[in-house]
Simulated assay, not measured.
Amino acid sequence: MLQGFEHIGMTSGDLDRTIWFYCDLLGLRLHLRKPASSGEVAFLDAGGGMLEIFAPAEPVTRAQDVPPQTAGMRHMTFAFSDIDPVVQRLEEEGLEIIERPRLAHNQDVFKRVAFCRDPDGIIVELAERAASRP
Rank of each mutant, 00 (worst) to 15 (best):
L28Y: 06
K111L: 11
V66M: 05
P68A: 05
D84R: 14
G72L: 08
S38F: 13
F80L: 01
E91D: 10
T61F: 09
R112H: 10
A46H: 07
E93K: 13
I98Y: 08
R100T: 14
P101C: 01
K34N: 08
G48P: 03
K34E: 12
G48H: 05
R89D: 04
D84N: 09
L44T: 00
P35C: 04
E92C: 03
D82W: 01
V66W: 10
T77M: 08
A63T: 10
V109T: 05
E93N: 07
S37A: 13
A104F: 09
F110S: 08
T61P: 02
A71G: 13
R29Q: 12
V66H: 04
S37F: 11
D84M: 04
P35Y: 02
L32T: 15
L30V: 13
R33W: 10
L30R: 09
G49L: 05
N106R: 14
S38V: 05
I97M: 10
L30W: 07
E40G: 06
R100K: 15
I83G: 00
D65I: 03
H105W: 10
D108L: 09
L90P: 00
N106S: 09
K111V: 02
D65H: 09
S81V: 05
F43T: 10
M73R: 14
K111M: 06
S37L: 15
P101S: 01
G47I: 01
V86Q: 01
P101D: 00
Q69N: 15
E99A: 12
R29S: 11
E92W: 03
M76S: 03
I83N: 01
R62I: 04
G72D: 04
I83Q: 00
T70M: 13
V86N: 02
P35R: 07
R29M: 09
R102C: 14
K34M: 14
R100M: 14
F54P: 00
I83E: 00
I98H: 08
P56Q: 06
L44Q: 01
E92P: 08
D65E: 14
A63I: 04
P56D: 04
Q64P: 01
T61I: 10
G48F: 03
L30E: 15
T61R: 11
G27E: 07
H75W: 11
A55M: 08
H75C: 07
E91R: 15
H105Q: 15
S37G: 12
M73Q: 12
E96A: 11
